[in-house]
Amino acid sequence: MASQGTKRSYEQMETDGERQNATEIRASVGKMIDGIGRFYIQMCTELKLSDYEGRLIQNSLTIERMVLSAFDERRNKYLEEHPSAGKDPKKTGGPIYKRVDRKWMRELVLYDKEEIRRIWRQANNGDDATAGLTHMMIWHSNLNDTTYQRTRALVRTGMDPRMCSLMQGSTLPRRSGAAGAAVKGVGTMVMELIRMIKRGINDRNFWRGENGRKTRSAYERMCNILKGKFQTAAQRAMMDQVRESRNPGNAEIEDLIFLARSALILRGSVAHKSCLPACVYGPAVASGYDFEKEGYSLVGIDPFKLLQNSQVYSLIRPNENPAHKSQLVWMACNSAAFEDLRVLSFIRGTKVSPRGKLSTRGVQIASNENMDAMESSTLELRSRYWAIRTRSGGNTNQQRASAGQISVQPAFSVQRNLPFDKPTIMAAFTGNTEGRTSDMRAEIIRMMEGAKPEEMSFQGRGVFELSDERAANPIVPSFDMSNEGSYFFGDNAEEYDN
């Protein structure tokens, strides 16, 4: 993207840094990872977990959730003011799984939030270390993106479920800051804005008074975040219109849905970061690795190297396929839920299948599930090659597409044709070009129609051997075009429920 120079890199967003050079960025990201790792080690000690239990991804998720809940100030305040039966607002906890007599047992633990905050700050040299908290939120978000298709949420806001490739980060909490905003897809931002506008339509006082002023500035800020994701002048001009509207209503909703559809071809720039579970960072720190000293990046080879040398386990339900569970977590670790499966298959070195073909449910185990038949197995999170994460949407291309997802959002900077089903997408653009945004709409449609099938995206960008740390010898991959490109292809993934 041309304006790259004016933006802070995501590592800076990730670490609240002012302008830093590459070495400083690597050190501050490393410091953040160190903090998460030290916190995780301490929690495993508190909970008396064995090494194996500490490497269980379900335990990692519970521990991450506990610290996120302990620092969720708004919710904590709300819980104190609106006490609900049987919930102690000062405590947080969740299921911890232990191996007892050759069987997995679930144990519900409860801790004072104050105590968890103390352990977290102690692991982070006394700081609140917001960057580390956001990092864990993005890992949870990436896992949700890989596990669930947001059909219901899309339909509720009037969008087409086939636009799911635009929904990265749709389950990120509001408090995820600049680093969170960077990884949100165009569809996620559109959905947040539509929800806001709908509230304004239904509630006369939404934009009024002292609160209304705050609401208005939040609305304009979200519009600017979305505008910054678009790469064409016409899309940005249309966002200006939406932002400046005196009284946002149905016309703005129409414009936003139009823009979301246009992003299936004229893709937005959305950041991709490899955020790993805390149970990967903990053992690495415990083994003596100093992330701050060595430096770390979320968008280069580092996460690949770390996963190459990590042992992570997962509980497996009786009829689940461990290899499929591994694929789910591998995609989440690489922030690749909406990437082209052919690119992923090449990088991973084994075939990556669409969601609907995987015999696996989510990673988390519900409290009512029976533990008797639970097994555990090693997650295979290694890769054959590594590639640089991208934040450009890439230019655009036609490809055989599917009944489910009709476009992709690249996660890796790797040369390819970008699949999208042009006739299906263009069919949504018939007729409606009147109104105050008509010239911009016409211009956007013209650009979409001009998108050429034979153009290559990320020209000359390749993948790298894991021994090639400096990215000196790019390998331009070859793809098996007979395979499906979309992950949520004609899909039956479970729906995400809060």
Rank of each mutant, 00 (worst) to 15 (best):
M1P: 08
M1D: 11
A2Y: 01
S3Q: 08
K7A: 00
S9L: 15
Y10F: 11
E11C: 12
E11N: 07
Q12F: 08
Q12K: 15
Q12A: 07
M13H: 03
T15H: 12
D16W: 05
D16V: 02
G17Y: 00
E18F: 08
R19S: 01
R19N: 06
Q20S: 15
N21Q: 03
A22T: 15
T23W: 06
T23S: 15
E24R: 11
I25C: 00
R26S: 15
A27Y: 01
S28E: 00
V29G: 02
M32Q: 01
M32I: 05
M32V: 14
G37N: 08
F39K: 04
F39P: 08
Y40G: 03
I41C: 13
I41A: 09
Q42W: 07
Q42K: 14
C44I: 15
T45K: 07
E46P: 15
L47Q: 01
L47K: 09
L47H: 05
K48S: 09
S50Y: 03
S50M: 11
S50I: 00
D51K: 00
R55E: 05
R55H: 13
Q58Y: 13
S60R: 10
T62N: 15
I63C: 14
E64W: 08
S69D: 06
S69W: 04
S69I: 07
A70Y: 11
F71K: 13
D72T: 12
R75D: 10
R75Y: 12
Y78H: 14
L79D: 02
L79R: 07
E81R: 08
A85D: 00
A85P: 14
K87Y: 10
K87P: 07
K87I: 08
K91G: 03
T92I: 05
T92V: 03
G94V: 02
Y97T: 05
Y97I: 08
R99K: 15
V100W: 06
V100A: 15
D101F: 00
R102G: 13
K103T: 11
K103Q: 07
W104C: 04
R106M: 07
E107F: 05
E107H: 14
E107G: 03
L110V: 10
L110K: 12
D112C: 11
E114R: 01
I119C: 13
R121T: 10
Q122C: 12
N124G: 14
G126F: 03
D127W: 12
D127E: 11
A129W: 00
A129F: 04
T130R: 12
T130Q: 08
A131W: 04
A131V: 07
G132R: 03
G132W: 05
L133G: 03
T134S: 14
H135S: 07
I138N: 06
I138E: 01
W139S: 05
W139P: 07
W139N: 08
L143M: 11
L143N: 05
N144I: 10
N144H: 02
D145Q: 06
T146D: 10
Y148A: 05
R152I: 01
V155F: 06
T157G: 02
T157Q: 09
T157L: 01
G158A: 12
P161N: 01
R162Q: 05
M163Q: 08
C164S: 13
S165T: 14
S165F: 06
L166F: 01
L166Q: 15
S170V: 06
P173W: 01
P173M: 03
R174Y: 02
R175D: 09
R175A: 05
G177I: 09
A178F: 00
A179Y: 01
G180P: 01
K184F: 07
G185K: 00
V186S: 01
V186Y: 08
M189E: 05
M189Y: 05
V190S: 11
V190R: 03
E192Q: 04
L193Q: 15
I194N: 02
M196W: 03
I197R: 00
K198P: 02
K198Q: 14
R199C: 07
R199M: 14
G200V: 07
N202S: 07
N202R: 03
D203R: 01
R204I: 02
F206C: 11
W207F: 12
G209Q: 07
N211I: 05
R213N: 13
K214S: 06
T215K: 14
T215L: 07
T215W: 02
R216E: 06
R216A: 09
S217C: 10
Y219H: 14
E220G: 12
C223A: 15
N224L: 12
G228F: 04
Q231V: 10
A233M: 13
A234H: 10
A234V: 13
A237N: 07
M239L: 07
D240L: 10
D240V: 09
Q241L: 07
R243F: 11
R243L: 03
R243Q: 06
R243P: 02
E244V: 14
R246F: 07
R246G: 04
N247R: 02
G249W: 11
G249M: 07
G249L: 11
N250V: 08
E252I: 07
I253N: 07
E254T: 09
E254P: 06
D255W: 07
I257M: 14
F258M: 11
A260Y: 08
R261F: 07
A263R: 01
I265Y: 00
L266C: 09
G268S: 15
S269G: 06
S269C: 12
V270S: 12
A271Q: 03
A271I: 06
H272I: 03
K273F: 03
K273S: 08
K273Y: 05
K273L: 03
A278N: 14
C279W: 09
A284H: 13
A284S: 03
G288N: 08
E292I: 13
K293R: 13
S297D: 02
V299Q: 05
I301T: 01
I301P: 10
D302S: 14
P303M: 13
F304S: 02
K305T: 06
L307I: 09
L307P: 00
N309T: 15
S310E: 02
V312K: 05
Y313V: 05
S314F: 08
S314I: 07
L315Y: 06
R317W: 09
P318E: 03
P318G: 13
N319E: 01
K325Q: 10
S326E: 04
M331W: 06
M331T: 10
A332Y: 06
N334G: 10
S335Y: 06
S335T: 10
A336N: 14
A337G: 13
F338S: 07
F338D: 00
F338H: 11
D340V: 09
L341K: 09
L341S: 11
R342C: 10
L344T: 14
G349M: 07
T350L: 12
T350A: 15
P354S: 06
K357M: 11
L358G: 01
S359H: 12
S359K: 04
G362R: 04
V363M: 08
A366S: 14
A366I: 06
S367Q: 10
S367L: 02
N368A: 06
E369F: 03
E369Y: 14
M371C: 13
D372A: 09
D372K: 03
D372M: 10
A373P: 03
E375T: 07
S376H: 08
S376Q: 10
S377K: 00
T378R: 15
L379R: 02
L381F: 12
R382C: 13
R384V: 08
Y385P: 15
W386R: 06
R389Y: 06
R389A: 14
T390W: 02
T390G: 04
G394C: 01
G394Q: 07
N395M: 04
N397A: 13
Q399R: 15
R400N: 03
A401D: 01
A401W: 04
A401N: 15
G404W: 01
G404M: 14
Q405F: 08
Q405M: 13
Q405P: 05
A411V: 14
Q415W: 09
N417D: 03
P419R: 09
F420C: 07
K422V: 10
K422P: 00
P423V: 14
P423G: 14
I425E: 01
A427D: 01
A427N: 14
T430D: 00
G431R: 06
T433P: 11
T433Y: 13
R436I: 05
R436M: 03
R436Y: 05
T437A: 15
T437R: 01
T437M: 02
S438N: 15
S438F: 01
D439P: 00
D439I: 15
G450Q: 01
A451T: 01
P453C: 06
E454M: 08
M456P: 00
S457D: 15
S457N: 15
S457R: 04
F458V: 01
G460T: 03
R461L: 05
V463Y: 13
F464P: 15
S467M: 14
E469P: 13
E469T: 06
N473A: 00
N473T: 11
P474W: 03
P477V: 00
D480I: 02
D480P: 12
N483K: 14
E484F: 05
G485W: 14
S486E: 01
G490C: 04
D491P: 01
D491H: 04
A493K: 14
A493L: 09
E494A: 11
D497V: 15
D497W: 01
N498F: 05
